[in-house]
C-alpha cells in the first residue's frame, strides 16, 4: 500500500469528531506537524473495534508537533516536541 505522505511532509490532523474507537487524541485534532517516520500498514482500529477485519489497512505515521503548536501557552523552550502516531485517513496536506 503506497503511503500518501513522505517523511518530512507537513500535514494537518483532521478536525473531526466521529464516535467510536478513535485513536487520534483530541489535543492533536486540527494541529499541523511534520511526518517523522512511516510505521507501516495496520488494521484501522475504528473498523477492528466492530470486528470488521476485511477493511483496507491504513498507513500509520509518526507526526512530530511543536509543543507550542499544540498549546499556545506552553511553558517550556520552543524546541520541545510531541510525536504522535496517526493513521493516514486522519491526515491532510497542510495548507499553512
Amino acid at each position: 500500500m503506497a503511503a500518501r505522505f513522505a517523511v518530512g511532509d507537513r500535514v494537518a490532523v483532521r478536525r473531526a469528531f466521529p464516535l467510536g474507537h478513535v485513536r487520534t487524541p483530541y489535543y492533536a485534532r486540527g494541529a499541523v506537524g511534520d511526518v517523522e517516520r512511516i510505521c507501516g500498514d495496520f488494521g484501522n482500529p475504528e473498523e477492528l473495534a466492530f470486528g470488521r477485519r476485511d477493511r483496507p489497512r491504513q498507513t500509520l505515521y509518526r507526526v512530530r508537533f511543536a509543543q507550542t503548536a499544540l498549546w499556545p501557552d506552553y511553558a517550556g523552550p520552543a524546541g520541545d516536541t510531541i510525536d504522535i502516531e496517526l493513521y493516514e485517513h486522519w491526515l491532510e496536506p497542510a495548507t499553512e
Binding site: 485513536r23 516536541t81 510531541i82 510525536d83
Partner: peptide, 11 residues
C-alpha cells in the same frame, strides 16, 4: 529538548 512520545496506536 524534551520530546514526548504519545503511544496512541500500534507502536
Amino acid at each position: 529538548t524534551v520530546r514526548v512520545h504519545d503511544s496512541t496506536a500500534d507502536m
